[in-house]
């Protein structure tokens, strides 16, 4: 799994350290990757302390890619407060990439 967000490198590092994640976590502070995938939202409400309430963010999106680099499954939120749960993601992965 690879994650990417508009957080700075320092913020990503702090989150990775705090939560003990072993996956690759990327910083897209300039939102270039967000714009490339068209998940960038120019003005979204954010809750991070010390940062502007309204700023560019991304639409929470999960993209499953197979070993050949082909997209096999996509999960995208239509509401920023509703998160994908683990069961839903695992079900999507199992269906798209059956072992």
């Amino acid at each position: 799994m690879v994650t990417i967000s508009p957080d700075t490198v320092a913020e990503v590092a702090a989150m990775k350290s705090k939560l003990g994640f072993g996956m690759r976590m990327l910083s897209d502070e300039s939102l270039e990757v967000g714009a490339l995938y068209n998940v960038k939202v120019d003005k979204a409400m954010a809750g991070a302390p010390g940062r502007k309430i309204f700023r560019p963010l991304v639409i929470p999106t999960a993209i499953l890619v197979d070993a050949e680099g082909i997209v096999r499954w996509i999960d995208q939120a239509d509401n920023y407060q509703i998160r994908s749960d683990a069961d839903r993601v695992l079900a999507g992965i199992k269906q798209a990439l059956p072992v």
Binding site: V2, E11, A67, L97
Partner: peptide, 26 residues
């Protein structure tokens, strides 16, 4: 990446992966 090192998504070629966009650390 979190260490400030350059990372290219093409480096994952040959392995399936899940790319997850999220809003931030808060």
């Amino acid at each position: 990446d979190s260490d400030g090192a350059a990372f290219s998504i093409s480096s994952l070629s040959g392995k399936p992966f899940l790319l997850k966009f999220y809003r931030g650390h808060w």
